[in-house]
Design a protein around this nucleic acid. Sequence first.
DNA 1: AACAAGATTAACT
DNA 2: GTTAATCTTGTTA
Length: 225
Amino acid sequence: MDCSDGSHPKMIRGTIIPADFYKSDDVVAIAQQLLGKVLVFQTERSKVAGCIIETEAYAGITDKASHAYGGLLTKRTEVMFREGGIAYVYLCYGLHALFNVVSSARNTPHAVLIRGIIPLEGLDIMESNLGRKVNIVKDGIGPGRLTRLLGISKALNGVRLDGAAGLHISDYGIQIDAEAIISCPRIGVAYAGEDALLDYRFKVDVDYAIGQIKKGSPELRPASL
DNA sequence: AACAAGATTAACT
DNA sequence: GTTAATCTTGTTA
């Protein structure tokens, strides 16, 4: 049984990533550095958390795969143009909420798509979100799957990632070695011409990540592992 | 005003 | 391997 009233003394482990982290212009570096960090979403009644294991960088107005390519400013992309450190959540294919971290300065619409997590905390909430038992490996991998698992919806579009709206990213001391990061082209961006070839997708092996989670945060092991 | 395509997924054959 | 589900936006008329 989890204590879900938010005041559990044992829960204080992670350090919320400072606002400055998100202000860098180097969206590729941010995408890499987010691997191993912990995405947390909590409300008064619930808390869920997962270790980020897959990301993609979208490099603003010069990247043909980016929604903000060419400086395209619409109701949907508007949050990408704000100062880094907020969430960009949009509906993909009319069905799936996709969660991105907006980075860089105002009017530099860089973003990192979170594509995979390993569930760490709040398995009971996740099970409720899915309406069935959680598969620790499968249910957190896929940009649409992880938002459903964590309960992240478009309602969180534009919120700061400092925890004020319940959403934040923390460093729990999970170490991801540079050699463990696999780079490859992004998924589903064939329309982006030569930019579809860029190695802007970053991930780590699931088993490696689980090992590093156990090493870095012994008490916070992936549930059921 | 109508239509196609998209940073996807689950359920089929 | 194929396809249905179905919202936002740009393009075409």
